[in-house]
Design a protein around this nucleic acid. Structure first.
Lengths: 375, 375
DNA sequence: TCGCATATCTTTAACGTTAAAGTAGTGTAG
DNA sequence: CTACACTACTTTAACGTTAAAGATATGCGA
């Protein structure tokens, strides 16, 4: 069922061995190349009549405007911004938070007439490795660096190009504008909510603290070494709230998952709920993880929220419609995208830009949390 | 809260008035520019020692590889594929089907080490207009043309560039490889399902037949003029099934919505269900529309499926978990993306490519359809 | 009639890279 | 010691565009 290009009826842009260029059109019309260029880019620089004549000839020969690459080389800009992502792009499209972010970002780049080039760290030849060249070879005017680990090679490569850039979520880099949520405050608010309800025994189901694929209980030393700013800040937020309430952090178990799926949450709950001093409340780093925790809890014979309160993070669309509806931290990812876009566009234009810094989140209290059952 | 670029600690890539280039490094090391180029692109063309010396000097000066634009100009390729979208990109990110498609597409382009450039028709300056220049100015090696109307100016501009291309969903263009679902068969299967259950009075809630924003009952002449292939084929599928069953197409009301949201489905149901000869079954062009129809039906006092059967299209994640669970046509959008990617990559490499053509769909029967209530 | 602004087009010179062909020098088989 | 292959580099010449400055003609007020 295959067919070759030639048979597919595609012809090339050549005729007489020459690719069509401004110069070729110029020869045909009998003017200079510059004038043809002006016909496309500065209509006021030539007479209406000549401009029409040029377009007519161009149309006849099948020329459709100056070559973008030649233009970019000469102008020293591409009108494209690159989005750098650590994982395969398909992960990004499968992650509602990333998609919302891109939605917000694209609304700004589009308004500014910039293209959006998606670049991922995981290249073709490499089996499971990273390809920092991707960032070196992207023809862009600036980068949006989306949630990377401090050590990601792509990050270093991108920053070394000295282009305008914005970092989203992590890591914080001196001199590079940043947008992210106030994760510490968010976690603190979630913790205070459950403290207010009277809980005292907590466990945390976190997604990766560091990008090494580890899964299991994360002891304090590992918590401190966390490479991911977001995870680190959240732990700090929980801890701060607990200690303000007079509880000891050492009694809080942190289970680290190498990703953010329902299955991982399920496994984490399995490990946490069988403990002697079973927690009465679990904080999860994402709604997916939280749903997995709830799933296991129900299988295990616990009722939610009576026996176990669960708080998620993200407020995905499903959060409100599952049973029980999920108490979770709402974050406006699209707005984050908008701000990242604005900050980058402002840099590209050499304008002042709002240094957004940390965005506020809000705790949405639903049915998965309540006061603990009296002993 | 703003700050200027200068204060942000960003420095440029220049020193001594010179931008860093291969040539600059070559001078510094005392070799030709070509040798520096080879150091990056063809390590086997120079001695290991010299190569190291070049990298060392490059590192010292802060040069991080050949400029992508210069390379693209010389090589006459960009290693980027463009995705053309008729609407604002943020719509694409808000549409689960488009996101799944991109997920599949990106898995292929990534494997082939190609960047993905998202280009939309709606440009910056324009208030509500189209910007065909976007396709003319994209520095890409090929296009994925995503579900466009026949008349979309962006389409003509893109095709006129004579680059490798793949059309997704619509329109069918002579000589341009195509991927899409077999919408006629899908609609026919849905119709046959309800015919088998004994239904005889049908209505259809379609998304746009043509891109003019019209909303309301679409009479047969408008149906025939439909610019969107997908909508046209589905109507043909329903009609074929009905007529095979001896029913008259003229008794089937088609309500056209200018988009695909729950609200539009709600309005469509309002118009359709108040008719004298109320239909016992409704076919919707998307699950979103179907959910809106069901919502209105319930408000109107009808029970689903007892009083009204509803069939959706897409099988979005929520389809299985709403009440009643939605009978719908499942389509594998990610697979469509994979195929589109493979077809484009094959063209770029001048290889044979699979001409995917129409992908099969499957009807997922859930709780929103049943036999009609006996009169 | 002169001076000067204006409109319309041209010339020059990069922008940064790499394919292709060329030049030495070195080893090595006959 | 000659012919030939091989390694390690260099030279040349585009790839297609446009910023900046220059040229020429025309109009127009004084």
């Amino acid at each position: 069922m295959g067919r070759r290009k030639e048979e597919a009826g595609l012809s090339t842009n050549r005729s007489g061995g020459h690719r069509l260029t401004l110069t070729r059109i110029a020869e045909e019309v009998g003017v200079s190349a510059m004038t043809v260029s002006n016909a496309y880019n500065r209509p006021d620089q030539l007479s209406e009549a000549l401009r029409e004549r040029i377009f007519e000839t161009a149309g006849k020969l099948g020329f459709h405007g100056p070559d973008p690459v030649g233009r970019s080389l000469r102008r020293q800009r591409t009108d494209v911004v690159g989005v750098l992502y650590s994982n395969p792009l398909s992960y990004a499209f499968d992650d509602p938070a990333a998609v919302s972010f891109l939605s917000g970002l694209s609304s700004v780049t589009e308004e500014a007439d910039l293209g959006l080039l998606l670049v991922s760290a995981t290249g073709g030849g490499l089996v499971a490795g990273r390809n920092p060249k991707a960032a070196a070879q992207a023809a862009v005017d600036g980068f949006v660096i989306y949630s990377m680990s401090e050590e990601e090679p792509l990050l270093a490569t991108a920053l070394s190009r000295q282009l305008p850039a914005v970092v989203v979520d992590q890591p914080l880099k001196e001199g590079v504008p940043f947008v992210g949520f106030d994760d510490e405050a968010a976690a603190r608010a979630a913790a205070e909510h459950l403290l207010d309800l009277g809980h005292e025994r907590f466990a945390i189901v976190s997604f990766a603290l560091s990008p090494d694929g580890w899964e299991g209980i994360a002891e304090p030393d590992r918590q401190e070494r966390a490479a991911f700013r977001v995870s680190r800040l959240r732990l700090r937020g929980y801890r701060g709230a607990f200690e303000d309430a007079g509880l000891s952090w050492s009694e809080v178990t942190v289970y680290e998952c190498p990703g953010s799926t329902k299955e991982l949450g399920h496994r984490a709950a399995e490990a946490l709920l069988s403990s002697e001093r079973r927690p009465t409340a679990v904080f999860a780093s994402s709604d997916q993880l939280a749903l997995g925790v709830i799933e296991y809890a129900l299988e295990y014979g616990l009722s939610v929220p009576e026996d176990l309160s669960v708080v998620g993070f993200d407020d995905i669309p499903a959060a409100g419609s599952v049973d029980p509806p999920l108490t979770t931290v709402h974050q406006d990812h699209a707005q984050k995208g908008v701000l990242a876009g604005r900050m980058l566009v402002a840099q590209l234009r050499d304008e002042d830009f709002p240094n957004a810094g940390s965005l506020q989140t809000s705790l949405v209290v639903r049915g998965s949390t309540s006061a603990p059952r009296k002993p």
